[in-house]
Simulated scan of single mutants.
Amino acid sequence: MKKILLVDTNCSSKPIYDYLVRSGNEVFVCGGNPNDFLAKYAKNYVELDYSNIDRSLALVDSLGVDYIVPGCNDLSYKICTELNSQGKFYGLDRNEVSEIINNKKKFRLLAAEIGLPVPRIIPHGEFSDILPVIVKPTDAYSGRGVTIVRESDRDKLQTAIEYAESFSRTKTCVIEEYIEGQLYSHSAFLSGGKIVCEFIVEEHGTANPFVVDTSRVVYDFPEDVIGRIGDTMLTMAKHLQLVDGLIHTQFIKQGSSFWLIEVTRRCPGDLYSQLIEFSTGFRYAEAYTEPFLNQTVSLKDVHLKQSYVMRHTISQQVAKTFSSLQFNLPIQIEDLLFLSLSGDMVKSSPFGRIALLFARANSESELSKLFRSTLQRELYNIY
Protein backbone atom coordinates (compact mmCIF):
# COMPACT_ATOMS: atom_id res chain seq x y z
CA MET A 1 0.00 0.00 0.00
CA LYS A 2 1.36 3.39 -1.04
CA LYS A 3 0.97 6.66 0.88
CA ILE A 4 -0.53 9.59 -1.01
CA LEU A 5 -0.75 13.22 0.11
CA LEU A 6 -3.50 15.36 -1.45
CA VAL A 7 -2.54 19.01 -0.97
CA ASP A 8 -5.97 20.62 -0.70
CA THR A 9 -9.07 20.34 1.49
CA ASN A 10 -11.60 22.22 -0.66
CA CYS A 11 -14.79 20.43 -1.71
CA SER A 12 -13.73 20.62 -5.37
CA SER A 13 -11.04 18.05 -4.60
CA LYS A 14 -13.56 15.48 -3.34
CA PRO A 15 -13.71 13.55 -6.67
CA ILE A 16 -9.89 13.38 -6.63
CA TYR A 17 -9.88 12.15 -3.03
CA ASP A 18 -12.58 9.56 -3.71
CA TYR A 19 -10.61 8.16 -6.64
CA LEU A 20 -7.43 7.97 -4.55
CA VAL A 21 -9.27 6.08 -1.82
CA ARG A 22 -10.75 3.68 -4.40
CA SER A 23 -7.23 2.99 -5.64
CA GLY A 24 -6.63 1.12 -2.40
CA ASN A 25 -3.85 3.35 -1.08
CA GLU A 26 -3.53 5.24 2.20
CA VAL A 27 -4.60 8.82 1.53
CA PHE A 28 -3.79 11.91 3.60
CA VAL A 29 -5.06 15.44 3.00
CA CYS A 30 -3.59 18.65 4.35
CA GLY A 31 -4.83 22.22 4.65
CA GLY A 32 -4.98 25.03 7.15
CA ASN A 33 -8.78 25.20 7.63
CA PRO A 34 -10.27 22.39 9.75
CA ASN A 35 -13.75 23.50 8.63
CA ASP A 36 -13.04 22.80 4.95
CA PHE A 37 -15.00 19.98 3.33
CA LEU A 38 -12.21 17.42 3.05
CA ALA A 39 -10.86 18.30 6.48
CA LYS A 40 -14.12 16.92 7.87
CA TYR A 41 -14.73 14.26 5.22
CA ALA A 42 -11.32 12.61 4.87
CA LYS A 43 -10.14 9.83 7.16
CA ASN A 44 -6.58 11.18 7.48
CA TYR A 45 -6.61 14.97 7.77
CA VAL A 46 -3.51 16.92 8.76
CA GLU A 47 -4.08 20.52 9.81
CA LEU A 48 -1.26 22.38 8.10
CA ASP A 49 -0.84 25.65 6.24
CA TYR A 50 0.83 24.04 3.23
CA SER A 51 2.09 27.40 1.95
CA ASN A 52 4.79 26.95 4.64
CA ILE A 53 7.13 24.91 2.47
CA ASP A 54 9.41 23.83 5.34
CA ARG A 55 6.52 22.39 7.32
CA SER A 56 5.10 20.76 4.20
CA LEU A 57 8.46 19.13 3.45
CA ALA A 58 8.63 17.90 7.05
CA LEU A 59 5.15 16.38 6.71
CA VAL A 60 6.08 14.59 3.47
CA ASP A 61 9.19 13.16 5.14
CA SER A 62 7.48 12.16 8.38
CA LEU A 63 4.66 10.35 6.58
CA GLY A 64 6.96 8.71 4.06
CA VAL A 65 4.78 9.91 1.18
CA ASP A 66 5.13 8.04 -2.12
CA TYR A 67 2.97 10.36 -4.27
CA ILE A 68 1.79 13.94 -3.91
CA VAL A 69 -1.31 15.24 -5.72
CA PRO A 70 -2.20 18.93 -6.13
CA GLY A 71 -5.79 19.94 -5.53
CA CYS A 72 -7.90 22.58 -7.25
CA ASN A 73 -6.08 25.85 -6.69
CA ASP A 74 -2.91 27.45 -8.07
CA LEU A 75 -1.15 27.64 -4.70
CA SER A 76 -1.57 23.90 -4.18
CA TYR A 77 0.07 23.13 -7.52
CA LYS A 78 2.86 25.65 -6.86
CA ILE A 79 3.65 24.12 -3.47
CA CYS A 80 3.67 20.63 -4.95
CA THR A 81 6.25 21.67 -7.56
CA GLU A 82 8.40 23.08 -4.75
CA LEU A 83 8.03 19.84 -2.79
CA ASN A 84 9.27 18.09 -5.92
CA SER A 85 12.47 20.12 -6.24
CA GLN A 86 14.49 16.89 -6.13
CA GLY A 87 12.37 15.25 -8.85
CA LYS A 88 11.19 12.49 -6.52
CA PHE A 89 7.49 12.72 -7.41
CA TYR A 90 5.53 12.33 -10.64
CA GLY A 91 3.25 14.38 -12.90
CA LEU A 92 4.63 17.78 -11.88
CA ASP A 93 6.35 20.42 -13.99
CA ARG A 94 9.57 22.01 -12.84
CA ASN A 95 8.96 24.81 -10.34
CA GLU A 96 10.29 27.49 -12.71
CA VAL A 97 7.89 26.28 -15.42
CA SER A 98 4.97 26.38 -13.02
CA GLU A 99 5.91 29.95 -12.10
CA ILE A 100 5.87 31.01 -15.76
CA ILE A 101 2.43 29.48 -16.34
CA ASN A 102 0.78 30.80 -13.18
CA ASN A 103 2.25 34.31 -13.11
CA LYS A 104 0.23 36.46 -15.50
CA LYS A 105 3.09 38.81 -16.35
CA LYS A 106 5.59 35.99 -16.98
CA PHE A 107 3.04 34.09 -19.04
CA ARG A 108 2.40 37.14 -21.24
CA LEU A 109 6.15 37.51 -21.81
CA LEU A 110 6.39 33.82 -22.77
CA ALA A 111 3.44 34.26 -25.14
CA ALA A 112 5.18 37.16 -26.87
CA GLU A 113 8.36 35.10 -27.18
CA ILE A 114 6.78 32.05 -28.85
CA GLY A 115 3.83 33.70 -30.60
CA LEU A 116 0.84 32.68 -28.49
CA PRO A 117 -2.35 34.78 -28.95
CA VAL A 118 -2.85 36.83 -25.78
CA PRO A 119 -4.11 40.34 -24.98
CA ARG A 120 -1.40 43.00 -25.23
CA ILE A 121 0.35 44.18 -22.08
CA ILE A 122 -0.05 47.95 -21.77
CA PRO A 123 2.86 50.00 -20.36
CA HIS A 124 1.71 52.82 -18.07
CA GLY A 125 2.83 55.42 -20.60
CA GLU A 126 0.51 54.02 -23.29
CA PHE A 127 -2.54 53.78 -21.05
CA SER A 128 -4.41 56.63 -22.75
CA ASP A 129 -3.84 55.22 -26.24
CA ILE A 130 -5.49 51.81 -25.72
CA LEU A 131 -8.84 51.68 -23.93
CA PRO A 132 -10.44 49.92 -22.24
CA VAL A 133 -7.79 48.10 -20.19
CA ILE A 134 -8.09 45.44 -17.51
CA VAL A 135 -5.89 45.49 -14.40
CA LYS A 136 -5.19 42.15 -12.66
CA PRO A 137 -2.94 40.84 -9.88
CA THR A 138 -0.13 38.79 -11.41
CA ASP A 139 -0.63 35.86 -9.06
CA ALA A 140 -4.21 35.86 -7.71
CA TYR A 141 -7.20 33.80 -8.83
CA SER A 142 -11.02 33.64 -8.91
CA GLY A 143 -11.43 37.17 -10.23
CA ARG A 144 -9.96 38.78 -7.11
CA GLY A 145 -8.58 42.27 -7.47
CA VAL A 146 -9.66 42.79 -11.11
CA THR A 147 -10.85 46.14 -12.52
CA ILE A 148 -11.75 47.34 -16.03
CA VAL A 149 -10.73 50.95 -16.70
CA ARG A 150 -12.67 52.43 -19.61
CA GLU A 151 -11.70 56.11 -19.32
CA SER A 152 -8.41 57.93 -19.77
CA ASP A 153 -8.19 58.77 -16.08
CA ARG A 154 -4.83 58.34 -14.33
CA ASP A 155 -6.41 58.44 -10.87
CA LYS A 156 -8.79 55.58 -11.74
CA LEU A 157 -5.89 53.59 -13.17
CA GLN A 158 -3.83 54.12 -10.01
CA THR A 159 -6.76 53.03 -7.85
CA ALA A 160 -7.12 49.89 -9.98
CA ILE A 161 -3.40 49.17 -9.67
CA GLU A 162 -3.45 49.52 -5.89
CA TYR A 163 -6.55 47.32 -5.68
CA ALA A 164 -4.93 44.60 -7.81
CA GLU A 165 -1.67 44.70 -5.87
CA SER A 166 -3.57 44.29 -2.59
CA PHE A 167 -4.61 40.79 -3.76
CA SER A 168 -1.17 39.81 -5.06
CA ARG A 169 1.25 37.79 -2.94
CA THR A 170 4.08 39.65 -4.68
CA LYS A 171 2.26 43.03 -4.69
CA THR A 172 2.42 43.22 -8.47
CA CYS A 173 -0.14 43.55 -11.25
CA VAL A 174 -0.48 43.54 -15.02
CA ILE A 175 -2.32 46.04 -17.23
CA GLU A 176 -3.53 44.61 -20.51
CA GLU A 177 -5.86 45.30 -23.40
CA TYR A 178 -9.45 44.37 -22.55
CA ILE A 179 -10.87 41.96 -25.14
CA GLU A 180 -14.62 41.77 -25.68
CA GLY A 181 -16.02 38.34 -26.51
CA GLN A 182 -17.33 35.08 -25.08
CA LEU A 183 -15.31 33.29 -22.41
CA TYR A 184 -14.66 29.55 -22.80
CA SER A 185 -12.36 26.96 -21.32
CA HIS A 186 -10.41 24.30 -23.18
CA SER A 187 -9.57 21.34 -20.96
CA ALA A 188 -7.18 18.86 -22.53
CA PHE A 189 -5.03 15.91 -21.52
CA LEU A 190 -1.48 15.58 -22.84
CA SER A 191 0.15 12.19 -23.35
CA GLY A 192 3.29 11.48 -25.33
CA GLY A 193 3.36 14.97 -26.83
CA LYS A 194 -0.21 14.74 -28.12
CA ILE A 195 -3.65 15.83 -26.95
CA VAL A 196 -5.56 12.61 -26.30
CA CYS A 197 -8.83 14.10 -25.06
CA GLU A 198 -10.28 17.63 -24.94
CA PHE A 199 -13.44 19.51 -23.98
CA ILE A 200 -14.83 23.00 -24.57
CA VAL A 201 -16.95 24.66 -21.88
CA GLU A 202 -18.90 27.92 -22.23
CA GLU A 203 -18.47 30.11 -19.13
CA HIS A 204 -20.30 33.13 -17.68
CA GLY A 205 -20.26 35.27 -14.54
CA THR A 206 -23.64 36.43 -13.23
CA ALA A 207 -22.93 37.55 -9.66
CA ASN A 208 -19.52 38.96 -10.57
CA PRO A 209 -18.37 39.56 -14.17
CA PHE A 210 -14.84 38.37 -13.33
CA VAL A 211 -15.88 35.10 -11.66
CA VAL A 212 -17.24 32.10 -13.58
CA ASP A 213 -20.40 30.81 -11.92
CA THR A 214 -22.41 29.32 -14.81
CA SER A 215 -21.14 26.87 -17.43
CA ARG A 216 -21.99 24.04 -19.81
CA VAL A 217 -20.12 21.74 -22.18
CA VAL A 218 -20.27 22.84 -25.84
CA TYR A 219 -20.60 20.01 -28.38
CA ASP A 220 -20.75 22.03 -31.62
CA PHE A 221 -17.73 24.32 -31.16
CA PRO A 222 -15.98 25.07 -34.50
CA GLU A 223 -13.49 22.28 -35.21
CA ASP A 224 -10.97 24.61 -36.86
CA VAL A 225 -10.83 26.80 -33.74
CA ILE A 226 -10.43 23.76 -31.47
CA GLY A 227 -7.60 22.61 -33.72
CA ARG A 228 -5.82 25.96 -33.50
CA ILE A 229 -6.22 26.09 -29.73
CA GLY A 230 -4.82 22.57 -29.46
CA ASP A 231 -1.86 23.50 -31.67
CA THR A 232 -1.22 26.53 -29.44
CA MET A 233 -1.19 24.33 -26.34
CA LEU A 234 1.18 21.85 -27.97
CA THR A 235 3.53 24.69 -28.97
CA MET A 236 3.67 25.83 -25.35
CA ALA A 237 4.00 22.27 -24.04
CA LYS A 238 6.96 21.59 -26.31
CA HIS A 239 8.68 24.90 -25.49
CA LEU A 240 8.31 24.43 -21.72
CA GLN A 241 8.79 20.64 -21.82
CA LEU A 242 5.56 20.08 -19.93
CA VAL A 243 4.98 16.68 -18.37
CA ASP A 244 1.95 14.60 -19.37
CA GLY A 245 -1.36 15.46 -17.77
CA LEU A 246 -4.05 18.12 -17.72
CA ILE A 247 -3.62 21.51 -19.38
CA HIS A 248 -6.59 23.78 -18.76
CA THR A 249 -6.99 27.07 -20.62
CA GLN A 250 -9.47 29.93 -20.39
CA PHE A 251 -9.80 31.92 -23.60
CA ILE A 252 -11.98 34.60 -25.15
CA LYS A 253 -13.42 33.97 -28.60
CA GLN A 254 -14.48 36.73 -30.97
CA GLY A 255 -15.57 35.44 -34.36
CA SER A 256 -12.92 32.95 -35.45
CA SER A 257 -10.20 34.65 -33.36
CA PHE A 258 -9.26 33.75 -29.79
CA TRP A 259 -7.01 35.07 -27.04
CA LEU A 260 -5.60 33.00 -24.16
CA ILE A 261 -6.49 34.51 -20.80
CA GLU A 262 -5.11 31.97 -18.35
CA VAL A 263 -3.46 28.54 -18.45
CA THR A 264 -3.24 26.17 -15.49
CA ARG A 265 -2.17 22.59 -14.89
CA ARG A 266 -4.22 21.97 -11.76
CA CYS A 267 -7.79 20.70 -11.69
CA PRO A 268 -10.27 23.60 -12.07
CA GLY A 269 -12.39 24.42 -9.04
CA ASP A 270 -16.12 24.46 -8.28
CA LEU A 271 -16.35 20.77 -9.24
CA TYR A 272 -15.53 21.39 -12.91
CA SER A 273 -14.55 17.71 -13.05
CA GLN A 274 -18.13 16.76 -12.24
CA LEU A 275 -19.52 18.96 -15.01
CA ILE A 276 -17.43 17.03 -17.54
CA GLU A 277 -18.35 13.66 -16.07
CA PHE A 278 -22.10 14.38 -15.79
CA SER A 279 -22.15 15.78 -19.35
CA THR A 280 -19.94 13.29 -21.21
CA GLY A 281 -19.28 10.31 -18.94
CA PHE A 282 -15.52 11.01 -19.03
CA ARG A 283 -13.91 10.33 -15.64
CA TYR A 284 -12.12 13.66 -15.50
CA ALA A 285 -10.87 13.50 -11.89
CA GLU A 286 -9.32 10.09 -12.53
CA ALA A 287 -7.59 11.26 -15.72
CA TYR A 288 -6.27 14.31 -13.85
CA THR A 289 -4.92 12.20 -10.98
CA GLU A 290 -3.29 9.34 -12.90
CA PRO A 291 -0.03 11.13 -13.93
CA PHE A 292 0.69 12.00 -10.28
CA LEU A 293 0.54 8.26 -9.52
CA ASN A 294 3.04 7.53 -12.32
CA GLN A 295 0.26 6.25 -14.58
CA THR A 296 -0.60 7.10 -18.18
CA VAL A 297 -3.82 9.05 -18.74
CA SER A 298 -6.24 6.20 -19.36
CA LEU A 299 -8.71 6.28 -22.22
CA LYS A 300 -9.64 2.64 -21.74
CA ASP A 301 -13.38 1.99 -21.84
CA VAL A 302 -14.06 5.64 -22.72
CA HIS A 303 -17.37 5.99 -24.53
CA LEU A 304 -18.30 9.66 -24.55
CA LYS A 305 -21.95 10.66 -24.49
CA GLN A 306 -23.72 14.00 -24.91
CA SER A 307 -25.88 14.94 -21.95
CA TYR A 308 -27.29 18.38 -21.20
CA VAL A 309 -26.04 19.56 -17.82
CA MET A 310 -25.48 23.03 -16.35
CA ARG A 311 -23.08 23.82 -13.53
CA HIS A 312 -23.94 26.89 -11.45
CA THR A 313 -22.30 28.34 -8.36
CA ILE A 314 -25.02 29.98 -6.28
CA SER A 315 -23.54 33.19 -4.90
CA GLN A 316 -24.54 36.74 -4.03
CA GLN A 317 -23.75 40.13 -5.52
CA VAL A 318 -23.74 41.70 -2.06
CA ALA A 319 -22.89 40.28 1.34
CA LYS A 320 -25.85 39.30 3.49
CA THR A 321 -27.14 36.62 5.84
CA PHE A 322 -28.30 33.53 3.97
CA SER A 323 -31.65 32.05 4.94
CA SER A 324 -33.02 29.93 2.09
CA LEU A 325 -33.35 29.36 -1.65
CA GLN A 326 -36.60 29.53 -3.60
CA PHE A 327 -36.55 28.12 -7.15
CA ASN A 328 -38.79 29.87 -9.66
CA LEU A 329 -38.70 27.12 -12.31
CA PRO A 330 -38.95 23.33 -12.05
CA ILE A 331 -35.51 21.76 -12.58
CA GLN A 332 -33.94 18.30 -12.56
CA ILE A 333 -31.25 18.52 -9.90
CA GLU A 334 -28.37 16.17 -10.68
CA ASP A 335 -26.41 17.26 -7.60
CA LEU A 336 -26.62 20.10 -5.08
CA LEU A 337 -23.79 20.70 -2.63
CA PHE A 338 -24.40 23.36 0.00
CA LEU A 339 -21.37 25.36 1.11
CA SER A 340 -23.24 27.67 3.50
CA LEU A 341 -25.91 27.06 6.13
CA SER A 342 -29.04 29.02 6.96
CA GLY A 343 -28.02 31.85 9.26
CA ASP A 344 -24.51 32.21 7.82
CA MET A 345 -23.27 35.63 6.80
CA VAL A 346 -22.23 34.97 3.17
CA LYS A 347 -19.81 37.37 1.52
CA SER A 348 -20.29 38.65 -2.02
CA SER A 349 -18.74 36.76 -4.95
CA PRO A 350 -15.91 35.71 -5.19
CA PHE A 351 -15.38 35.61 -1.44
CA GLY A 352 -18.51 33.65 -0.52
CA ARG A 353 -20.57 30.85 -2.05
CA ILE A 354 -23.89 29.31 -1.06
CA ALA A 355 -24.02 26.10 -3.11
CA LEU A 356 -22.85 24.25 -6.21
CA LEU A 357 -25.75 23.21 -8.42
CA PHE A 358 -25.76 20.71 -11.28
CA ALA A 359 -29.03 20.69 -13.23
CA ARG A 360 -29.90 18.28 -16.03
CA ALA A 361 -32.13 18.93 -19.07
CA ASN A 362 -33.70 16.51 -21.54
CA SER A 363 -32.67 18.38 -24.68
CA GLU A 364 -30.38 21.13 -25.92
CA SER A 365 -33.30 23.57 -26.21
CA GLU A 366 -34.41 22.79 -22.67
CA LEU A 367 -30.88 23.37 -21.39
CA SER A 368 -30.69 26.67 -23.30
CA LYS A 369 -33.87 27.86 -21.60
CA LEU A 370 -32.53 26.86 -18.19
CA PHE A 371 -29.17 28.47 -18.97
CA ARG A 372 -30.82 31.71 -20.09
CA SER A 373 -32.91 32.05 -16.92
CA THR A 374 -29.79 31.41 -14.83
CA LEU A 375 -27.76 34.04 -16.67
CA GLN A 376 -30.56 36.52 -16.06
CA ARG A 377 -30.53 35.50 -12.36
CA GLU A 378 -34.20 34.49 -12.59
CA LEU A 379 -33.86 30.78 -11.75
CA TYR A 380 -34.11 31.30 -7.98
CA ASN A 381 -34.35 33.88 -5.22
CA ILE A 382 -31.95 34.02 -2.30
CA TYR A 383 -33.43 34.94 1.08
Rank of each mutant, 00 (worst) to 15 (best):
Y219P: 02
T138G: 08
S168R: 07
P222K: 01
N103T: 10
D139R: 05
V174R: 15
V118Y: 09
Q182F: 08
M233V: 07
E223S: 06
C197F: 05
I134F: 09
L157V: 08
I122V: 03
Y141S: 11
P117H: 01
T170P: 13
F127P: 12
H204R: 07
E223I: 06
E180I: 03
K106N: 13
Y178E: 06
L190K: 00
I175L: 12
P117W: 00
G192I: 01
E177V: 06
F210H: 04
V196L: 01
I130L: 12
T232G: 11
M233A: 04
E177I: 07
D231F: 05
C173M: 08
A160F: 14
I195R: 02
D213E: 02
A164H: 10
D220N: 07
G181T: 05
K105P: 10
L234M: 02
P137H: 06
R108N: 14
D129Q: 06
I114Q: 11
C173G: 15
D213C: 00
E126N: 15
I175S: 11
L109W: 08
G145V: 09
F189N: 00
V174T: 15
T170W: 15
A160Y: 14
K194A: 10
I130F: 14
I195E: 10
I134N: 07
A111T: 14
H204W: 14
A160H: 15
S191Y: 05
D224M: 04
I179V: 00
E165V: 13
N103Y: 11
S168N: 04
P137T: 06
R144L: 05
I229N: 00
L110F: 10
T206C: 15
P132R: 02
V212G: 02
T214R: 09
K104A: 04
S166W: 14
S168A: 02
I121C: 08
K105N: 06
A207R: 03
T170S: 15
R150W: 11
H186D: 05
V211Y: 15
T172E: 05
S152R: 00
E151S: 15
I121A: 08
I195W: 12
N208G: 05
R108E: 12
N102S: 05
Y184W: 06
V218Y: 04
T172A: 07
I101D: 08
E162W: 12
I122R: 06
R144C: 00
I148E: 13
G192E: 01
P137M: 05
I175C: 11
D231M: 01
F107V: 09
S166M: 11
G205I: 03
V225D: 00
L157W: 05
V133N: 08
D153R: 10
Y178Q: 13
A188F: 10
T159S: 12
S152H: 03
T172N: 15
L183R: 02
G181N: 02
S168Q: 03
I175T: 12
G143A: 04
N103S: 11
R108G: 10
T172P: 12
Y163G: 11
E162I: 09
L110Y: 12
V201A: 03
I179T: 00
V217C: 01
R169P: 13
I121D: 05
D155A: 05
T159C: 14
A188G: 06
L131I: 09
E126S: 13
K136H: 10
M233Q: 02
S166H: 14
N208K: 01
E151P: 13
I101L: 07
V218W: 00
D224K: 05
P209N: 03
M233C: 10
